[in-house]
Design a protein around this nucleic acid. Structure first.
Length: 1022
RNA sequence: GCUCAAGUGGCGGAAUUGGUAGACGCGCUGGAUUCAAAAUCCAGUUCUUUCGGGAGUGUGGGUUCGAUUCCCACCUUGAGUACCA
């Protein structure tokens, strides 16, 4: 009986589906375990072999946990809203829902054929109205919440309103917009509802505000910071510009500290935590207020009139944030961002022109230019001065684009002796660099080291170290009322509006321009139909094209726009108002989906309390590291919010997280000759002769071989009748010939495992190469089937455009899902990036065949009740031990070799004992579940192997009576010696010393020392 | 620039508390089987060698009886971040 993997795999996939083998129950006496994969975006291209890597790992773990007696939740779903489907819809006019549905079908078929133990009864899709109903609901909860810094959590907005109406906002300690005016309870109660709504919007956790956003004209939408890479869009690489727009934002900054602290409580990789820490970017320091000296005061004190006119103007203050308040006496100038609002107000008439020119020049430069060009120092003096808080000396105020408007206050106190950027700026503009550090030379560069710092020339700070001086400086600033200790975060509030069609609609309508939430009872608000998926002619988002997109507040339903009037009078509206035209970003649906799996069909709640309590949070999460500062940060934010409001019980969503590395493609290249460069040796001139009347393809081996290049040149010249070339050929030795080539990707499916290209298939594939001439490694033309062309290889990211994509379908067909699963694990450590090489799969496939042969002979099962031998048991138990340790350590690659060793050994031992071969199947079942099920059923079992208890390791089978000791001399192993394990140290030493080879090694020398570690090693020194 | 990973045969990689470096697989070489091929099986495969050995885990140093493993410095590659005050 042969190993017919296709039949076996189809049979068991059907069995699992029909018997709902992997359906998890929300009621169980077993301990629970929740294994989650980052759900996929269903793209049109389907899965390639890189995608399942993480799923296979999590599936192995999930199956292992079932064997270990856990009730395992291992769900899967689709992050099915997103840009590609919409781009495709724009191109083809097809509704994204249709293409998404098609893509999901492909994904499902591909996933099923790999044999995953997913509980498909809990599948979720973010684009499904029954799902996004709850995304909308969470949005409403965020809108109805504010962040109370006193209780350090989000609370409902009702609490805030009652505070306002009873005591005003003076004592409210909230995370909110800057510059909120103080008001009393009486004032609050007398405010119009419109004004009250405006004020509340400044406190809500999601709020509407005019913000500078990253606008991508090519995509017609706003992008979040994490969606921009190197100043261009992550998808498509389109330019991004700054633009002011009214947008929904999420007050994630309220959670900055908790997001940072929470990292210490979760089991994630250090590099991932580090990226989140950097992204949050906490810096501790102080805010300092500098008073601007009225411009008349300094320069024209004598001029009474001008002095008075300046005095009548309002006085200005500049707030700065600094991490080094200890260096405040080293300030020799201040720098404002060119966009700073004070710039135009304080610039003196003499400097005004120059300042304005500079501002304009900076505005023209794109964000990308500014980022790319860090070296050029530029700036302009404003003419204005600020007063030093302690010395009262005037400090010149400059503007410079090295100060960013978006960070801190957009202004810095410049301490050139302690900050390299300030130092460079001061040097460039000849601004004094006072030294306030004891015993430090600052003639070459700034001294930015906090640890080795003693402050000097700084009045009351003299002689103090960084820590002491900082504390004292803050204290003194507080005394003056010109500063306080402050912590700043780089983390910005997240823009939540997208000008796209294929996303969650907001449950929001506008009355007189003020946002109103639709009641939970009327959710979901479904995406309206539009006839095109592009922005409108007036620049509104695609939803602006919908005809039925207004909210009827009387009947609580979406109605035709024609019923909605824009007139101001309340009566004319008839209770019908326009709906929000933006949609939510990709991360909305993915920030909470892990809770939905717990109770996927609940239509009363996003998940029931019991389900949330039972499954708690994700025990193991596997996915790519590219989500470090997007999905993984936003999810943590939403979970913390939901916890604050009592909707869930957990503070962190993912207890343990593993990043699987990417599987890279091995691209194949052919090299077409661009030209032959002929250099005359005698005449000392260079000429490039274009010989290409025909396309010539050469292999890599020829590139640097002068002889072969000449040979190719001569062979090809028969296609060219040019006199010049005839002349060169006749005097070929007078010319030095070089060759320039162009690398062209060849589809990897046209190349066999020995890197040989099928030339006829290649010509068929690239019609423009149908007349190309291929040259072999000897410089000879390849004609017909004679000769082979070897492609060049390079490891690159797997992608359609590089023609290096390997499809799991064909692998499953040729070798089976079990082979694919084993091979993906066998490639190397899960977290590591590694290239895919299809030829290696024969190794694991051969292993499965060998395994099959161990169990099944020509006439059926080869297994009996024979008493296992000592060797059989030893092999089994060392395998149990290793595999269990490996799975616990997520070292799946090493278990595959362990299985190979076990099967090799048992085959050699001719083992037929059921007592050994049955437990081995359970060990293997998480990795290669189909073959394990099949053989297990042939043993006579009627139940699936999937919940059989994991075999127990018994150390007694591994006990040895002797050890093959490595005998080393000065740490180098020279020979081995078999000795009983119960031998004493002294006896071992004696036995080694009398040995032939020892004497040979020592050559008469007396050893200085003999180290004997019983059971391990003997080392002779001397 | 800063932060974090990682450097071991022709290739993917193994060596879990410092104790026989190169497990396992690919590839390659030779052989068996076959009309032939595929498949299968057997043997070999770090380098070097005067066939006794000798060297060897990016480089240089250190700790140790003993270092791929620990410490210091450097080099290279990859990823993230980028004027964050």
């Amino acid at each position: 009986m042969q190993y017919h993997f296709n039949e076996i795999e189809a049979k068991w996939q059907k069995y699992w589906a029909e018997n709902k083998t992997f359906q998890a129950s929300n009621n169980s006496d077993k301990p629970k375990y929740y294994v989650l994969d980052m759900f996929p975006y269903p793209s049109g291209a389907g899965l390639h072999v890189g995608h399942p890597l993480g799923y296979i790992a999590s599936d192995i773990y999930a199956r292992y946990k079932r064997h270990k007696g856990f009730n395992v939740l291992h769900p899967q779903g689709y992050d099915s809203f997103g840009l590609p489907a919409e781009q495709y819809a724009i191109q083809t006019g097809q509704h994204p829902a249709l293409t998404t549905e098609e893509n999901i079908k492909t994904y499902r078929r591909q996933l099923d054929q790999i044999g995953f133990s997913f509980d498909w009864s809990r599948e979720v899709r973010t684009s499904d109205p029954s799902y996004y109903k709850w995304t909308q609901w969470i949005f409403i909860q965020l809108f109805e919440s504010w962040y109370n810094k006193d209780s350090n959590k989000a609370e409902t907005i009702e609490i805030l309103i009652s505070k306002f109406s009873s005591e005003g906002n003076a004592n409210v300690n909230a995370v909110c917009d800057d510059n909120i005016e103080d008001f009393t309870a009486e004032q609050w109660n007398s405010f119009s509802s419109k004004k009250q709504q405006d004020i509340l919007l400044q406190y809500r956790l999601t709020y509407l505000a005019e913000t500078e956003v990253n606008w991508c004209p090519a995509l017609g939408t706003v992008l979040a910071n994490d969606e921009i890479v190197n100043g261009v869009s992550e998808r498509g690489g389109h330019p991004v510009v700054r633009k002011k727009m009214t947008q929904w934002s999420m007050r994630i900054s309220a959670y900055a500290e908790r997001l940072l602290q929470g990292l210490d409580t979760i089991d994630w990789t250090d590099s991932l935590k580090e990226s989140q820490r950097n992204w949050i970017g906490k810096s501790v320091g102080a805010s300092v207020t500098f008073n601007v000296i009225a411009s008349g005061t300094k320069q024209s004190v004598g001029n009474e009139k001008e002095y008075h006119s300046e005095q009548s103007e309002e006085s200005h203050k500049i707030d700065v944030f600094t991490t080094r308040p200890d260096t405040i006496f080293g300030v020799s100038f201040m720098t404002l961002a060119p966009e700073h609002e004070l710039v135009s107000k304080i610039a003196t008439p003499e400097q005004k022109a120059e300042v304005e020119a500079y501002i304009q020049a900076t505005a023209k430069r794109s964000e990308r230019d500014r980022m790319a060009d860090v070296k050029t120092i530029s700036g302009v003096f404003t003419g204005a001065y600020a007063e030093h808080p302690f010395t009262k000396e005037p400090i010149p105020i400059w503007i410079g684009d090295y100060v960013l408007a978006g960070y801190g206050t957009g202004a810095v106190m410049s301490v050139p002796c302690g900050d390299q950027r300030d130092y460079d700026f001061a040097k460039h503009f000849n601004i004094p660099i006072p030294n306030i550090f004891e015993g430090v030379d600052i003639s070459e560069e700034a001294h930015a080291d906090k640890d080795n710092t003693v402050i000097a020339n700084s009045d009351f700070l003299n002689g103090m170290n960084y820590k002491k001086a900082t504390k004292r400086a803050i204290y003194e600033l507080e005394q003056l009322g010109q500063g306080e200790g402050k912590t700043n975060y780089r983390l910005r509030d997240a823009v939540f509006s997208r000008q796209r069609y294929w996303g969650e609609p907001f449950p929001v309508y506008y009355v007189n321009g003020k946002p109103q939430m639709i009641d939970k009872a009327h959710l979901p608000i479904r995406l309206p139909e539009v006839e095109k998926y592009l922005p409108t002619e007036t620049g509104e988002p695609p939803l602006g094209r919908a005809d039925v997109w207004a909210w009827d507040t009387k009947n609580n339903k979406v109605v035709s726009n024609t019923l909605c009037h824009s007139e101001q009078s309340e009566e004319s509206h008839n209770g019908i108002y326009p709906l929000e035209l933006n949609t939510m970003p990709g991360w909305a649906g993915s920030s909470w989906y892990f809770f939905r799996y717990m109770d996927a069909h609940n239509d009363q709640d996003f998940a029931s309390e019991e389900a949330l309590k039972y499954w708690d949070n994700v025990d193991l999460y596997i996915g790519g590291s590219e989500h470090a500062t997007g999905h993984l940060l936003y999810s943590r934010f939403w979970v913390k919010f939901m916890r604050d409001r009592g909707f869930v019980n957990v503070e962190e969503p993912f207890k343990k997280l593993i990043n699987q590395g990417m599987i890279l493609g091995t691209s194949a290249f052919v090299y077409s000759v661009l030209n032959f460069e002929c250099l005359s040796k005698s005449e000392n001139n260079t000429e490039i002769i274009n010989l290409l009347s025909k396309l010539i393809i050469v292999p890599t081996t020829i590139f640097n071989d002068k002889k072969l290049i000449k040979k190719v040149f001569i062979n090809q010249s028969e296609f060219n009748t040019s006199k010049k070339i005839q002349e060169i050929i006749s005097n070929i030795d007078d010319f030095e010939i070089n060759m320039n080539v162009n690398s062209i990707h060849a589809d990897v499916s046209l190349v066999n495992s020995s890197n040989e290209l099928s030339i006829s298939d290649f010509k068929n594939w690239r019609k423009d190469f149908c007349d190309a001439i291929f040259i072999d490694e000897n410089g000879e033309m390849i004609e017909g089937d004679n000769g082979v062309y070897k492609v060049g290889r390079e490891v690159e990211k797997m992608s359609k455009s590089k023609y290096n994509v390997v499809n799991p379908d064909s692998i499953c067909e040729q070798y089976g899902a079990d082979s694919l699963r084993l091979y993906e694990m066998f490639l190397g450590p899960l977290e590591q990036y590694k290239p895919w090489n299809t030829s290696g799969i024969t190794g694991v496939h051969g292993f499965l065949k060998k395994l099959w042969k161990l169990y099944v002979g020509e006439n059926g099962l080869n297994v009996n009740d024979a008493e296992p031998t000592k060797d059989n048991l030893k092999t089994l138990h060392k395998t149990i031990k290793k595999v269990e340790e490996d799975i616990e350590n997520f070292s799946f690659n090493t278990s595959v070799s362990t299985f190979m060793i076990a099967v090799n050994e048992l085959t050699t031992q001719k083992c037929t004992s059921k007592e050994v071969l049955e437990p081995l199947l359970i060990l293997l079942s998480p990795y290669a579940p189909h073959i394990a099920e099949e053989l297990y059923s042939q043993f006579g079992h009627n139940e699936s192997i999937s919940t059989e208890p994991f075999p127990k390791f018994d150390a007694s089978h591994l006990v040895e009576s002797s050890k093959n000791y490595p005998i080393s001399f000065n740490g180098k192993m020279r020979f081995t010696l078999e000795l009983p394990l119960d031998m004493s140290k002294e006896d071992i030493e004696a036995a080694v010393m009398v040995h032939e080879k020892t004497k040979e090694q020592l050559q008469g020398r007396e050893p200085k020392k003999v180290i004997v570690v019983p059971g391990k090693i003997v080392n002779i020194v001397g």
